[in-house]
Design a protein around this nucleic acid. Structure first.
Lengths: 340, 340
DNA sequence: AGCTGTATCATTACTGGTAACATTATACAA
DNA sequence: TTGTATAATGTTACCAGTAATGATACAGCT
């Protein structure tokens, strides 16, 4: 079917091994032979069978990436960050979605490991820790991205969610807000907790009581945000005097849903209530009003993770000393937050 | 390192081959032995080395997907459609972005083929036909998605762009519009051409002259849309009497840019000019005004493509008879188009 | 008893590439 | 002249599976 080393060897009357070494620029093959081999390989259209060389070298030249949902721009930008760094190498990427489901996450990981990937990037769905056991047992370098397992020591890259929460609180406080609603993702997700902690930390600096912040949890989706905000609004005794003047949303998705709920009650953003999102989705400047939000720089997270991965692969680092990289988020000022 | 067939064989005192056949439920292995082998494999945590079995079977259990940009929701939803169908099998997916660049497209394809993928899904960047030669030479089943090479015969799935253009024209015409601007992607992209043809076809039915439609080309990005729309607006002799009352945009991205340009000139959508997009991005109902657009059902395109792929892989179809699937788009009515 | 068939398992030979080791030839020094 | 270093290449074994073929034991039949 396709051209193999043997075909080239036969063509030139040399051994397969010589061809193999010539193509890999090994020093003990004569320059003339090397050139001849390469020319012949090119002429015959030889392509290396990577699976075969994997058997011997145990280097598959593949990396796996598992994310909750590639349709979420946060993760697709992370993917491209990783890909960008990989493009300079010859690594190819496998992608899998966990859909936030631990079983799917495990299944996808198993598949990738069976294929012999040289490393794994994982944004964990955080609903169990089985995937870590898998990764550890597989004895493969891996980088955990964005969400952290408590107590787990591993190479890890994330946006500084604490700082993001802090920034959000600071921004709202400076606009004069003193009562807040935090619509969070479930608190078992580390970033939800971290953002909360950062948010509270700033307020504490300003001597605000904890009771200044109400917390509600929902799925980080538009529907989730819509439902929880609607419920909250329904429970308000007086729509002209809300129990919070600003809503801090776990994601821009949630904020979109919150927008819809607010519109349903004929309230205005930011006149009646301010809304701040998180993630800076590509379209959040197109919403009405344009959404103030926090950019986590997912592309940078991806690039940083990939660099870490290659450091591990190249053995520049792997001896049990785990590195954690934290990337500072950016406040993006738009029109959905205003003076009280 | 990891458990192999040999480990199981040694443990049980049988041959490697027996283990291999037992695990694959071959009939010539005794039931007792089969059970024993399976138990032992489970106990030892055996995982098949897929690369090794690929060498002999030439089935890698991997499929490759190449798209222009996974950050574009159209393509990420296609990806998930494909993945959805693959989840029922044991296929794992490789993903690569071409970034609209033929060289990157070729490089990514080569990488995937070197890894021995059993099939390729390609949304071509349309700037050359080299990738097709690659695919043909590789002798691997492939499905071309969404964009069609003229004269090429291959399995192909796309949204019916002609119909989409037709729907857009119909909608605008029925609102009373008689002069149009089509902001297109470059016409070498088949879908740009098809949408144009459909658009014109409807207008022709209504006896409108070709001159009723102005055409401008730009990259299918927000910036592209913004620049071209701004230029067009600058060239208008009278902003109170525009030379077109409705803009048909190649994508929602372009429409967002167009929105910005229109806002810059202090015109209103849809009072001063109607805008219709294409793709129905996830957020297009959140824009202001909410964007009327055409949904191409990318998830369905993905699922359909995957089914085609498995038909080819299972040899239900491959003997030169190429199938083309066309999926009807849907008009999504929102607020950016209005009566003239 | 001897033959045949079947069920069950083992042997052997591959897949395509790589690593360790062996071989050959040439050059140069002792 | 002989030994040895060095450059250049060939041999062989191996990676983890799978396919083709071979071997053995036992049952059933004539």
């Amino acid at each position: 079917m396709s051209i193999t080393l043997k075909d080239i060897a036969d063509e030139l009357g040399v051994s397969v091994n010589t061809v193999s070494r010539a193509l890999r620029n090994m020093p003990d093959i004569g320059q003339e032979t090397t050139n001849l081999v390469k020319e012949t390989a090119a002429r015959l259209g030889y392509r290396k069978n990577l699976a075969a060389s994997y058997l011997k070298t145990t280097k598959s030249m593949m990396l796996g990436i598992v994310v909750p949902d590639i349709c979420n721009p946060v993760f697709s930008y992370m993917y491209k960050g990783i890909e960008k760094v990989c493009a300079e190498t010859n690594y190819t990427l496998m992608l899998g979605n966990s859909n936030g489901n631990p079983d799917e996450e495990s299944a996808v990981l198993s598949n990738m490991l069976d294929h012999g990937v040289d490393g794994i990037f994982l944004v964990p769905c955080m609903k169990n820790t089985q995937s870590h056991a898998q990764l550890e047992n597989a004895n493969v370098p891996y980088v955990i991205m964005q969400r952290k397992f408590p107590g787990l020591s591993a190479n890890f890259v994330q946006s500084n969610d604490y700082e993001g929460g802090y920034l959000a609180a600071q921004h709202l406080y400076q606009l004069g807000h003193r009562s807040f609603l935090y619509i969070s993702a479930p608190m078992y997700i580390s970033s939800a907790r971290d953002r909360y902690d950062g948010f509270m930390a700033y307020l504490k600096e300003k001597d605000l009581a904890e009771s200044a912040v109400q917390i509600l949890e929902c799925d980080s989706t538009r529907t989730g945000g819509y439902k929880i905000a609607r419920k909250w609004l329904e429970q308000q005794t007086d729509l002209n005097s809300l129990s919070a003047t600003a809503i801090f949303c776990f994601s821009d998705y949630v904020a979109y849903g919150v927008y819809s709920a607010i519109a349903k009650f004929h309230l205005r953003v930011p006149e009646d209530i301010s809304v701040i999102g998180y993630d800076n989705n590509e379209y959040s400047d197109m919403t009405f009003p344009a959404l103030t939000t926090i950019d986590i720089l997912p592309n940078k997270i991806g690039r940083q993770s990939a660099k870490m991965m290659f450091d591990m692969i190249d053995k520049k680092a792997d001896n049990g000393t785990h590195i954690e990289a934290v990337i500072s988020p950016k406040l993006i000022l738009r029109d959905s937050t205003g003076q009280i």
